[in-house]
Amino acid sequence: MRRDNVGPTCWGARPRRRLARGLAAAVLPVLAAALAPVADAGAATRHVWVAAVPTTWNAVPNARDALHGASYAAAETTFPTVAYRRYTRGWRKPLRLPYERRAGAGELTGPLIRARVGDELRIHFKNLDTLRGQAHSMHFHGVEYEPSSDGVWLPLHSGKGGRVAPGQTFTYELTAGAGSAGVWPYHDHSTSMEESIAGGMYGALSIAARGERRADREYLVAFAPWHGFQTINGRAFVGNTPVFQSRVGDTVQWDVIAMGDEFHTFHVHGHKWRTDGGTPEDTRGLGPAESFRVRWTERAPGTWLYHCHVETHMAQGMIGLYRVRR
C-alpha cells in the first residue's frame, strides 16, 4: 500500500525527527538532499526532480586513447544529445549531488537515485528537449508502480507518463517494495526511446535494504555504446571514464548497469567479490537493462583497471581507472 505524499523534501518517518528535518529542508534543501543517505533510517517519501535537457557531450575530453596511443579530434567525439538532469525543487536549477560526483553519475547518465526498501518515490519529470523537440519518458526497473507510472508508450493503453511532450511534466509514483534492494536501471521508454537511449537517456536507482548501512564509496558503472565508442557513464578510454577513488578500509559498492544491444562483462583488476551463493568471482556478465551491485572492503592499495572484458569493447573505450590510497 502506498504512503501519502507527505511533503516535497520530507523523508523522515519518525515523529520526533520530523520537525528538525522539516526545518533543515526548508532552510537548506540542497544540503538536506545531500544528507539524505545518512538520514534515511526509516521509510520515506522521496521527491526527485528530473528534466530531459539538451547538451553537447564529448566522450573523449582528453582527446586520447592513452592505452593504444591514438588521438581523436573533438569533432570525432563531440555530439549534441538529450540527457536526464537532476534539478532542484520545481526544476529551478540543475543539481549534481556530492555523492553523484563521487559515483561518476549525473553527467551524461541521469541522476543516481537513492532510496531504501519501503520508501515511496515521486519522480517529477519535465521534458525540456529543445534539441529535437521529441517526447520522452522515464521507465523504472525493480520498483513497483501502477501502469500509469510505467513510463511506456503503448497506444490505446498508456497515459501521459508514457509520452511527455516538450514543455510538459509528469510525476511518476513508485514504491521501493520488498525485494527491490539493489541497483536498477531507468530509461526513456517513449516513442523516441531508441534514439534517446543511444544518446544517453538512462540512469540508475540504488536501493538499500532496510537497516543496511550505505557503503563508504559508491560507484556507478553504466556500460553503453555511444557514437561508435563503447562508454562507461558516457566516456571512453582511461582518463576520461570515471577515476574512482577509495582508501584502504573503505567499504566500496559498484553499481553496474548495461544499456544498448550488447553483452558486457564487468571486471576489476586485483579484486574479487562473492556471489549471493558465496562463490568468489572477479568478472560478472550482464546484458541490456540488466544490473547488479557488488561490495567489498578495500584492502588493495594502488591504481587498478576496471573494464568490460569483451575485448573489442575495451579497445573502443570501455575501461577506466580505480585508485586506492593507503
Binding site: H68, G69, S71, G228, F229
Partner: peptide, 19 residues
C-alpha cells in the same frame, strides 16, 4: 608515450586513431 610497436617506439610522435 606510445605503446611499443605503434610508431616511433615508446615515445613516438602523434599517432591518429579512428574507431
Amino acid at each position: 608515450i606510445r605503446p611499443p610497436g605503434t610508431g616511433g617506439g615508446e615515445h613516438g610522435g602523434g599517432g591518429h586513431g579512428g574507431h
